[in-house]
Design a binder for these strands. Sequence first.
DNA 1: TATGAATGAGGGTTCATTCAT
DNA 2: CATGAATGAACCCTCATTCAT
Lengths: 215, 215, 215, 215
Amino acid sequence: MIVKSDALTARGRRTREALVRAGREAFDEHGYDAVRVDDVCARAGVSHGTFYTYFPSKEVLFREVATAVVGEMFAASVVGPAASGDPYARIEAANRLYLRAWSANSRLVRMLEQAAAEEGLRELLLELREVFVRRGADGLRRLQEQGLADPALDPRLTAIMLGGMVEHFARVWLDLGEPADERTAVDLLTRLWARAIGLTPAPESTPASTSAEDM
Amino acid sequence: MIVKSDALTARGRRTREALVRAGREAFDEHGYDAVRVDDVCARAGVSHGTFYTYFPSKEVLFREVATAVVGEMFAASVVGPAASGDPYARIEAANRLYLRAWSANSRLVRMLEQAAAEEGLRELLLELREVFVRRGADGLRRLQEQGLADPALDPRLTAIMLGGMVEHFARVWLDLGEPADERTAVDLLTRLWARAIGLTPAPESTPASTSAEDM
Amino acid sequence: MIVKSDALTARGRRTREALVRAGREAFDEHGYDAVRVDDVCARAGVSHGTFYTYFPSKEVLFREVATAVVGEMFAASVVGPAASGDPYARIEAANRLYLRAWSANSRLVRMLEQAAAEEGLRELLLELREVFVRRGADGLRRLQEQGLADPALDPRLTAIMLGGMVEHFARVWLDLGEPADERTAVDLLTRLWARAIGLTPAPESTPASTSAEDM
Amino acid sequence: MIVKSDALTARGRRTREALVRAGREAFDEHGYDAVRVDDVCARAGVSHGTFYTYFPSKEVLFREVATAVVGEMFAASVVGPAASGDPYARIEAANRLYLRAWSANSRLVRMLEQAAAEEGLRELLLELREVFVRRGADGLRRLQEQGLADPALDPRLTAIMLGGMVEHFARVWLDLGEPADERTAVDLLTRLWARAIGLTPAPESTPASTSAEDM
DNA sequence: TATGAATGAGGGTTCATTCAT
DNA sequence: CATGAATGAACCCTCATTCAT
């Protein structure tokens, strides 16, 4: 009998959480296919059969992990009010959070892409991208209305492309073994982004970011 | 016993080619893991054992398919001399070919990413990206030397980012169900790219592309 | 996941033992190569997959069976104290046990020889022979020191040869369809052995063996 | 269509012989099961299909190889007339040839044992042993009739045992890594054999063997 | 005769899932 | 709730043998 999150004893809740955590780690390290249910159980310190007390299948566990990750990515990418004054600073702050959120979860996003082909996770992935696309499009539209960005650009398509630039960089950054640190990367992404949309006036130099989002 | 491409009778060559073609289709449609050797054989119209006459394993077939695809992508992305005069036109032509090459093979590139994690295909993927990165970096460097692009930009990192924009758009384009046609997409990608690197002077309007590379 | 002998429930232990027993029988009847994992499972009354709960491969099962058999052969060949007085009686008792141990397991020893060529079982076979060789050599050396056997004989090489006589007879005995019963065989082996090493005085007639080792 | 040895062109005969030779080498090096028909063909320098022009199956090739080997072993073990005078020298000469014949072919004899279980090669193996057993038994009987050996010994059983001693030593000689050279081995085998049958008088020292059989 | 492509039965192994305790 | 034994579908790969050319 599968046990939902509610209606669980404290012990049960702990076990369930251990499985989710173990699953997330395992998926992130080895990919969906390479992870066996046994691996997850071993990592969570429970026996093989216990898994099925909480999840009807490996896929459902993945779905839950993916949903949690997507939620975190949403939460982590909200630009705080600190950077609200300067458009360039806003873009920069957004890019920093964007890059961080996607870098930290690039493997899981990749798996979502894989899995999306065959299962019902497609929506989750689309929703994830949609949030970032919409945010980018809204931001651009606002700038256009304020006369700060090229009004000829289609906001949505532009956001897809420039957002894709950041997402893709997050994905290949480490793979390519480039020596760029986060600071350099965010600076350049932001400069390219700003100039691409015709943001005026372009700042003379990279402003020191000391906004609240910085860790 | 495995038979190399040379030293084959016409019949053998046909069979081998049928397997490669079948493999390419199958991988492209269902992904590496989902494809069973039997599927490939059925599609090629040969029996199970025949597969192993030509390939020692499924992985080797995939390697061959992937290598062929990468080769095609290289070949398909060479910008002809027709666009040589105008920098903007060159970028546009390159982007068009870039977009086409990656769109046409986006599934296989994804599979290469998957497979790269576990097998020796990592190099192939890196090499593929490297070619496009280097091309972009070289182009930018030339423009910088001619005083046509912002000299402050790191050519390689910039190429990675802007190239990633195109690659990622190629991957996501159809997935997102955007209504953009190729013309629109290339125009916008090029405009963003050109402006991002500070290409001067920016063209007033999108030039009609009638270059030789257009199909 | 493979389960070690310890940390097993009673049920698990029963299944494991059933597999070992079934494997031993099957190997003994048909030889290593001719035995399929399915055969062992069918004999043990378990499903195909269960096998791999306990053994990672067919080879490992064989290794365990072989180790057990070798252990039994060691145990079964220890000459009791009953025959300690008379050197000839000691040799006779040893030969009887030797012959029995090797006759009962001649097929498995043969398989060990086969398998030894390709796997890591060589050591087991060598160890098995070594024990018998050393025992024979030690016995001979003692007799030589007591002036009861020809001191010119190399103890080790002699033990290898005479031990080989017994081992080989055990192997060929039934194959050749000779009418000899165990009593006759042991008598003759012992007589030849004793005389070969120059044991003095040679007994006039075969002593009636009523030692404890006799069954 | 299978081609018999007769009714072959010179070319065909060469091919056939090449296959037999290749098969013998391959079997001797790797054992029956480990040898693939392909291996034999590659070694013989013919194509895969050609094999079946000459042999209906791998087993038949082995049968032919085995028969040839057994024939050679017969031929190689005939004691020449040179040693006819001295019984001890005769035994020694026989043992030397025995040891050589079986050492040189020990792997193939082992394979014959393996194969004997499942196919019709049992007879060949029995016949091979029978020849050596009979020779040994006849020799012993002659010595008994001449009053030179213990008349109480059953000639046939004794020959099986002592012959087994030599055969077995031939088999394990190299396996055990003993430092014994042929000379030492033959000396000791002969001394043991002679004394075991009560050959009188036992020679004081090992006679220098310079008989015709020595190579 | 010779070639080498094609065949397909057969075997070992994995692992998600079920179930009795 | 937890355990871990049992299941069996699925898959990859080998290789002796057949057959068209």
